[in-house]
Nucleic acid binder design. Structure first.
Lengths: 223, 223
DNA sequence: GTCTATATGCGGATAGAC
DNA sequence: GTCTATCCGCATATAGAC
């Protein structure tokens, strides 16, 4: 028994954090389900926050590395300016789905966790998370900007944000009841839909920059 | 003093829940900041869960009512089959932004709360929330289906989901640091961007329904 | 590294006076 | 309706034996 306490804790914590969130999951929940001693968490990870950090960074790093690697590959083979929007989005969106498949039965949990990560408000974690993600997103935004030179940079950033929101929401709730009728769709199909939806949205022609002098903006209360 | 204890509690709870989440906000945090007695929460709302429910439903109801009212109006004036995708999306997305403006200084808090609502995992609440939202979403999905008759229904549902994800993410994080460079954009501009992004995504031509016999699907580990 | 036992505090909730 | 005082369980964390 006790094949690898540290690993067991990480696996169970990942599942419980993904299902119920960080604040509502107690160390007792984790250790009892993992079959390890309560004190071992503090021994191995220092604190509950330390455990959260370990759980998340075990997954986040690889995802972002793959994203960048895929984009590198595209640009190396096709040249920086030849990458198309859907190819760029595929490079960004595929890694979490790919890792999900590689993790087998743990895949669903991993996916929920990766979705939840985007909504986590724990200050310390969020700062580190956003810091890492920003670097990756900046790289992808540059690539997209080259594919869509006429699109205003701030508008492009906003749209990239929309994409991330769709991705996070889908990962978080994709496997649960869902909103619409039609039952769950398999992850690969959803990924394809997301790429094609996002590509169309990001490539949409921009509206006139600041539509002030038209009839708009007359209604509505002040801020 | 004690103008209206119940209202004071609701206002402070809304802000703290929006900023820090339900689980991490204690009743003591709320009552001390609101300047009311600890026991008053249980007196007025029965329990902490009761308070959460009251906080959320005070906002969710009106948002959904306005959504439906706007869609009704469009269909009444133009006929059911004449509503365009961007008009339908505008009807769905405008109400939260509109209410935000009407709430004045409380608007930012309201927006964060409405964003967070989509990520809340509290079972009892989520069930009720999804139940209400499903009804509204079904109505909008029908309208969109009429505007896009050739789009497969399950694909449309998926895309509507993507839209909700973008909306929720934007509401939750729109006012904070953000990921990209360009500073915060004002809510009305973001709303316009979201409508146009979503309309393009939802209207995107569908890929061939089930691309199985092509070269795809050969890579990747099994589920 | 792993365990038991325990320190110490915060949490929601309520009893009962006013 | 509002307050004080208190119950009581659960939380994280650690001391110290093994």
């Amino acid at each position: 028994m006790a094949i690898d306490t540290k690993e067991r804790i990480l696996d169970v914590a990942e599942r419980l954090f993904a299902d119920s969130g960080f604040a509502t999951t107690s160390l007792r929940d984790i250790t009892s389900e993992a079959g390890v001693n309560l004190a071992s968490v503090n021994y191995h990870f220092g604190s509950k926050e330390g455990l959260l950090s370990a759980v998340l960074h075990r997954r986040i790093g690889p995802v972002n590395e793959r994203r960048v690697a895929r984009l590198d590959e595209i640009e190396r083979f096709k040249g920086q300016d030849a990458a198309k929007v859907d190819e760029i989005l595929r490079a960004f969106l595929t890694p979490p789905f790919e890792l999900r498949a590689e993790l087998g039965v743990r895949g669903a949990t991993f996916t929920r966790l990766m979705g939840r990560v985007h909504t986590e408000t724990n200050d310390e974690f969020r700062q580190s998370f956003v810091g890492q993600l920003s670097v990756v997103v900046a790289r992808f935004t540059q690539a997209l900007q080259r594919a869509l030179p006429s699109l205003e940079p701030t508008e492009l950033s906003t749209r990239m944000w929309f994409l991330i929101g769709s991705m996070a929401y889908t990962m978080m709730w994709g496997e649960s009841v869902g909103l619409g009728e039609g039952g769950t769709r398999d992850p690969e199909t959803v990924l394809e839909s997301l790429i094609e939806y996002g590509a169309a949205g990001i490539s949409a022609p921009a509206r006139e920059p600041v539509p002030v002098r038209a009839g708009r903006k007359s209604r509505g209360a002040g801020a």
